[in-house]
Computed example of a mutant assay.
Amino acid sequence: MPKSFVPLESNPEIFSSLSHRLGLGESLAFHDVFSIDDPDLLAFVPRPVSALILVFPVSETYEEYRKTDDATRPTDYYTSVAGTPAQDSLWYRQTIRNACGFYAILHALANGVHDLQSDSYIESLIKRTEHATVDDRTHILENDTELDKLYASLASKGSTQAPDASDEVNLHFVCFTRARGSGHFVELDGRRTGPIDLGELDKNSDMLSDKVLDHVRSFMQRETKDPSFSILALAPSFD
């Protein structure tokens, strides 16, 4: 039976607490993004933003888009470079059920963040996996009891009652950040066939730049039946 996690609530306090426990430095934290079109609301988000996590409904429209878009790439286009010098982004295939929130955090910390605590769990995980194959990374995460304990300590917290790990959840989490190597703007989703390179991003731009927000808008424009979107930004902490 596949390994399952209790789904994370889309809550900046929970995402920040789990990230700090994994090894993110206290200088960064997650924040709600209440609008991507209202300049006054965007001004509440501290800058620069290192990563965005988009939470959206898994609909038939999205699934059709995902499968069609993935079909444009060779199935081994990332696995053939994973762990080699040609690897640009550190990407993990999602095999743990209901763990897309964790994978979004992992992709953000492993790619777009430089403030990681020395000798932390996340620093150790990156060292263990950055030169590994995708299959080996999968095996490491599926069998990591330390991760299970770190995750379980926070997964059930939140303002609403947490679902069971075996429940069907129709919301998905995707990370947008910079690639470790080129600094390109990338979409990182463990359900895809690898990282999606969305091109160059000006060195002075962050994850609330127009190019990034236009890509986020494309997700919203595809979905006409269920507007259940939310966004978390990884940015300087208020503390």
Score class of each variant (00 low, 15 high):
Gly25Tyr: 01
Leu28Lys: 07
Leu28Arg: 08
Ala29Gly: 10
Asp32Gln: 14
Ser35Gln: 07
Ser35Tyr: 07
Asp37Leu: 10
Asp38Gly: 08
Leu42Lys: 11
Ala43Tyr: 04
Phe44Gln: 10
Phe44Val: 13
Pro46Gly: 13
Arg47Tyr: 03
Pro48Phe: 02
Pro48His: 05
Pro48Cys: 01
Val49Pro: 01
Ser50Ala: 10
Ser50Phe: 14
Ala51His: 02
Ala51Pro: 08
Ala51Thr: 07
Leu54Glu: 01
Val55Ser: 10
Glu60Ile: 04
Thr61Ala: 03
Thr61Leu: 04
Glu64Ile: 03
Glu64Asp: 15
Tyr65Val: 06
Tyr65Trp: 15
Arg66Gln: 09
Lys67Ser: 06
Thr68Met: 11
Thr68Glu: 06
Asp70Ser: 02
Ala71Lys: 01
Ala71Asn: 04
Thr72Asp: 03
Thr72Ile: 06
Thr72Tyr: 01
Thr72His: 11
Pro74Gln: 08
Asp76Thr: 02
Asp76Glu: 05
Tyr77Asp: 09
Tyr78Phe: 14
Ser80Pro: 09
Ser80Val: 09
Ser80Glu: 15
Ala82Phe: 06
Gly83Ala: 12
Ala86Gly: 07
Ala86Ser: 15
Asp88Val: 14
Ser89Lys: 05
Leu90Trp: 05
Trp91Gly: 00
Tyr92Val: 04
Tyr92Ser: 14
Arg93Cys: 06
Arg93Leu: 05
Gln94Pro: 05
Thr95Ile: 05
Asn98Cys: 04
Asn98Arg: 00
Asn98Glu: 04
Ala99Lys: 08
Ala99Leu: 07
Ala99Gln: 09
Cys100Val: 03
Ala104Gln: 02
Ile105Glu: 13
His107Val: 09
Leu109Lys: 04
Leu109Met: 10
Asn111Leu: 08
Asn111Val: 05
Gly112Tyr: 09
Gly112Asn: 03
Val113Asp: 11
Val113Glu: 03
Asp115Cys: 13
Leu116Tyr: 12
Gln117Val: 15
Ser120Ile: 12
Ile122Val: 08
Ile122Cys: 04
Ser124Ile: 11
Ser124Asp: 15
Ile126Tyr: 00
Thr129Gly: 09
His131Thr: 15
Val134Gln: 07
Asp136Val: 00
Asp136Ser: 12
Arg137Trp: 09
Arg137Asn: 00
Thr138Tyr: 13
His139Asp: 06
Asn143Gln: 01
Asp144Cys: 11
Thr145Val: 14
Thr145Arg: 06
Leu150Arg: 03
Tyr151Asn: 09
Ala152Pro: 00
Ala152Asp: 15
Ser153Asn: 02
Ser153Val: 01
Ser153Cys: 06
Ala155Tyr: 02
Lys157Tyr: 11
Lys157Met: 14
Gly158Val: 08
Gly158Met: 05
Gly158Tyr: 01
Ser159Gln: 15
Gln161Leu: 14
Ala162Phe: 03
Pro163Gln: 05
Asp164Ala: 15
